[in-house]
Design a protein around this nucleic acid. Sequence first.
DNA 1: GTTACTATCGATAATGAATATCATTATCTT
DNA 2: AAGATAATGATATTCATTATCGATAGTAAC
Lengths: 125, 125
Amino acid sequence: MIDKSKARRSTRQRRLIVDAVKHSLNHPSASDIYATLADSGIGIATIYRQLSALVEDGEIGSVKYQGEVRYDPIIQPHAHIVCSKCDKIWDVELPKEIKNLAPTNGSFEKLDVDLTWKGVCSDCR
Amino acid sequence: MIDKSKARRSTRQRRLIVDAVKHSLNHPSASDIYATLADSGIGIATIYRQLSALVEDGEIGSVKYQGEVRYDPIIQPHAHIVCSKCDKIWDVELPKEIKNLAPTNGSFEKLDVDLTWKGVCSDCR
DNA sequence: GTTACTATCGATAATGAATATCATTATCTT
DNA sequence: AAGATAATGATATTCATTATCGATAGTAAC
Ligand SMILES: [Mn+2]
Ligand SMILES: [Mn+2]
Ligand SMILES: [Zn+2]
Ligand SMILES: [Zn+2]
């Protein structure tokens, strides 16, 4: 549990982890980041802790796919297209029309959208 | 791993499990079904095995939410709206316009859509 | 710069969902 | 009824993630 009321310290680990996500291309998982930063000596617990904290702080985004969390350098709302063969994830634009398609019947307010297309990419065919 | 080339046998367990999902209202998880069928003596492994088999056979649907699989009596394509407080999941219609919004740039073919709205339900406010 | 406070770290134990193993049981075909 | 084998249930195992806790290192005050 991370307490948002306390100031966040700028540690070597945190700087390296944000940087790794910000420069990532394929929506890396926690263990991807761990592998990327292998020679930094950062512990796996710190990787998980900081990734969660960074998402909570709104510095990075996250997507769930196939039972694991993948991290995203893009924080603006956008959709994804995933390949069910190689599990790669690409960013696609979120259609502006989507807002008008939000359900209105129930009494939900300020709805977030999660839109993902799934198929098989060209490399996998 | 379930082999689709072999015939599937009609067991007491399988019948009870389909039935439980078909009569369910809240997109139950495997352990929800396990709890529902507690007095049947069905083992947890069988619950998981049959739920996977039933999805594979197209007899029930499934949705992933919060790192766990939830099962769905509805097999027709539809969207969902989830409450981030109580984790309940409701069915909503999948807008027909969504097909036209599918990304065309890449060389993906026959894309499936996964559309989920997220918010806080009326009960949780 | 030194001190004091405490957030953060790293090693590792623990958790929770899901799958694998394997001897036993029950279904289906002949 | 008998034989072949799919399915079951108890339990071990895997995998991602979280919790625990003593040690370490940012940070602000002096
Ligand atoms: Mn993205
Ligand atoms: Mn549904
Ligand atoms: Zn692919
Ligand atoms: Zn709710």
